[in-house]
Design a protein around this nucleic acid. Sequence first.
DNA 1: ACCTCATAGTAACACGTGTTACTAAAATCA
DNA 2: TGATTTTAGTAACACGTGTTACTATGAGGT
Lengths: 348, 348
Amino acid sequence: MDKVPTSYDVARLAGVSRTTVSLVLNNAPAAHISPETRRRVLEAARQLGYFPHAAARRLVQGRTMTVALIWHRGPDANYRDAFLPGLLQGLASVLHQQGYYLLFRPMEVHESEQVVLELAQGRHADGFVISGPRADDPVLLDLHERGFPLVLHGQLPGTDIPFVDVDNVAGARQAVEHLLRLGHTRIGIITNAPLSYVSARQRLEGYRLAMRAAGIEPPSEWIQYGNFDEASGRRAMQALLQVRPRLSAVFVASDMVAVGARYALWEAGLRVPEDIALVGFDDLPLAAYTVPPLTTVHVPAQALGRAVGELVLQRIQGESVSSRRLPTTLVVRASCGARKFSSRANLT
Amino acid sequence: MDKVPTSYDVARLAGVSRTTVSLVLNNAPAAHISPETRRRVLEAARQLGYFPHAAARRLVQGRTMTVALIWHRGPDANYRDAFLPGLLQGLASVLHQQGYYLLFRPMEVHESEQVVLELAQGRHADGFVISGPRADDPVLLDLHERGFPLVLHGQLPGTDIPFVDVDNVAGARQAVEHLLRLGHTRIGIITNAPLSYVSARQRLEGYRLAMRAAGIEPPSEWIQYGNFDEASGRRAMQALLQVRPRLSAVFVASDMVAVGARYALWEAGLRVPEDIALVGFDDLPLAAYTVPPLTTVHVPAQALGRAVGELVLQRIQGESVSSRRLPTTLVVRASCGARKFSSRANLT
DNA sequence: ACCTCATAGTAACACGTGTTACTAAAATCA
DNA sequence: TGATTTTAGTAACACGTGTTACTATGAGGT
């Protein structure tokens, strides 16, 4: 890479001092620059293809104009990967709008929290968005205490670090209320994950609220636990099929798990939705292409990214912020039985 | 955020000069430091939680230890998003291994190439990985001419910029040869995209090579063109169903398009694979969950990310590199008819 | 006793920018 | 005309680090 021009080169070409170049290019409000001088400077900068050296600027200004996205890869990594593109696009769009850059940092489970500390103490970024935080992370709490701008994607119980998440309770409730409205009363649930995960607890809570509001107290045998993947969904559904008399509908709090549950139904020779209706959660791309297409709760990945970006920028500008729970939308397809799914073809 | 310690603070606490701190922390090879002094410096740095200021370091060293990933969002954005998590993980892993950081920059279609120029001239990164490059981008060619380290993800005809891509020709050939081996001879193709896309031309080429090697010259009516989405696949398959006598198998050069093609077959009352066998390309997550599960050509997203990272790091270190075409793997599921897909249940 | 050499450590510079305090000239006012 | 303000622009400093050239001390050799 050849020599790249500095502000001194621009100054010389325009016949002014380097200070003037800086004042013009950052159009400083209180500076006295004649229109003619301004024009000459801009022309010189354009001609040389000058852009200020990022590191020098960061050093003198004391800020990096950068937000780091820490992407923890835990047991739920593959699941969360499905939302990564949308989240990134939403986050990046609000950052760029404000002139900020995005540093992406995946964190493997074996990696120490030291790398996050290094990112902060080494002033690689002005703020962090942290996705999939570990509950026992002292570094995070310490940084937050010291006022470093942090925003979580997903919730961390027992802290007041601001977070952005989808409203899991309301989303699950939406799904179950839809089934109730269709006339179902014997509705089971397969959670998306073990109850150590906040989202699993919340989605189960939404199920309970909807059922109780309908005057139904679901016995514990109606409740089974998934674990992110389809294998867990298959097992859980097999357990639910033991319930007598049979359940007429099951809310599966994750599309991936729902695919496994659907497989178990197929193995048992049961039809969806005629014998058992199904509703999922997440609205992954594949939900539209299962057989039958899966009714599910849409999670707005891009909106989550935008929200998380807005919050971290506000924190960087020193404002205090409050957490946000974004609303979900129920996407009605065929698996719940509300829509006809023509089945004249044998799908094998 | 409170005051964060500098190397001067470490020096004072350890009772040495700032130079010594720097020499110890970067363990300079030719420096004379007594073990006792070294210990005191390290202890002081640890105690203060010192990490060097990234911007200052970048400024003086003249390098950023950062690679930027430029993610173009064209008409194929949604399609390429499916590979983003894997590519990011692969790329990030090799970068971190060498102490490099990753700057992620999505580019909307309406955005000017000026932002890429600014990233380079402003020395925000030492090299770029560019995914989904536009063919008419003079900025890219100019940067490459001037020796700036660029590596493409996907190919750009008419340049010698190094690229990494999957071996589309071989992958398509694999898929079609598999169908031939199963006894099919009347095999059609639906491309993944219009032929203006290099990958579409190459996958079509692979199809042609396999067919010719089997002594079959496919007539033009066996060839239809997809356009990334399932709607295009449905249309294309409807066209192929006009061929008489009927084709016995179709290679669909994209899983998303294949889903649409499969839908058209279902509408026509045809069974897969009994009436028409199907093979896809990409191995998206949903391919394992279609009905029947889709035989397809696996694209190794992580390996692509790693390769692209290795190449850009080599370019940054001044080495010259040559492009790489990574091999694909055929994933045999049920849609090609090679594996039994039990169908005792009515899947609706 | 003198010179050489290895060891231990430091002072000073450079990186490229934003910004503050200052100067010089011109314009305005009394 | 002399005093004051406005306009136009600049010199100099600070940001925090890596590195080069240099000094000081003691050890070893003849």
